[in-house]
């Protein structure tokens, strides 16, 4: 479990002498066990922020503290679910999930036993020996979620994880994600451009806007779970966020 504090994070990309400010002055606190969603149009820096949290990118300025220790020094383990599946094609579903456990030093047999538990958590117990290319998009993404959870990371980062899936599959995986969160109380940082998804899942929704990427507003969602996307108060919050995303000034 992890408490994460971002203070005045900035990221500048320099390509061919032209510099672009992807993020400026981003400060944010993630409390332990929180489900936080980040919405924004493309170019608002939401994925850059996720990549910085994941350790794939270094911020140009600012500080990240994980349980009071700086991000580079902290040995917090982080699970990442990517939009593009990112499963290893040469490993079966079970072996994919076991990967992180093997990296943690577990023996192969032990890693497999534990991986099987997580495979069942995402209802894919029958597909242990299937290779990723034999699975549908939704099934692949469930394996990816199980893989990111299996080594019990303190923080789970999800980068538009269900963006490439059809509407029904996406809804089912959203519910599954919610159930997993309720059961495990992981800190989840969830990036999406789908406002309804953010309102359905998040305890707080961070609204980001571009040029340079910054946090425009943070909306707390107080609706009881499971939330009904057709209920009046749900639609009201959704409209409020949509407006905040596109407002001038």
């Amino acid at each position: 479990m992890a408490q994460i504090t971002l203070t005045k994070i900035a990221k500048r990309f320099v390509t061919d002498g032209r510099s672009v400010d992807a993020l400026k002055d981003v400060s944010l606190e993630l409390t332990d066990g929180e489900f936080i969603c980040v919405v924004g149009h493309s170019g608002c820096g939401k994925t850059t922020l996720l990549n910085i949290l994941a350790g794939f990118l270094r911020p140009t300025a600012g500080q990240i503290l994980v349980d009071g220790i700086s991000r580079e020094k902290s040995d917090v383990s982080i699970g990442v679910v990517f939009q593009e599946y990112a499963l290893f094609p040469w490993r079966t579903a079970l072996e994919n999930i076991a990967f992180g456990l093997e990296m943690d030093g577990l023996a192969k047999a032990e890693a497999r036993t534990k991986a099987r538990h997580f495979l069942e958590l995402v209802h894919l117990g029958d597909f242990a020996d299937a290779y990723p290319h034999q699975l549908s998009g939704g099934m692949r993404q469930r394996v990816a979620v199980a893989r990111a959870l299996a080594y019990e990371p303190g923080l789970l980062l999800m980068d538009e994880p269900f963006g490439a899936l059809d509407a029904q599959t996406r809804e089912r995986l959203q519910s599954m994600t919610q159930e997993i969160w309720l059961a495990t109380q992981k800190t989840i940082f969830y990036v999406t451009h789908n406002i309804s998804e953010a309102v359905f899942l998040g305890e707080r929704v961070v609204i980001m806007r571009p040029k340079p990427g910054h946090i425009h507003d943070i909306v707390k969602i107080d609706l009881p779970r499971p939330r009904d996307p057709l209920a009046d108060d749900f639609v009201h919050v959704q409209r409020q966020i949509t407006k905040a995303l596109s407002d001038q000034g």
Binding site: A54, V80, A86, L87, F88, F99, M103, R147
Partner: peptide, 18 residues
């Protein structure tokens, strides 16, 4: 080699020779 796979492995603390 697909950079997303390398990132995924990196996030699972896979480094160096592994």
């Amino acid at each position: 080699a697909n950079p997303v796979l390398i990132r995924a492995a990196h996030s699972m603390k896979c480094r160096g020779a592994k």
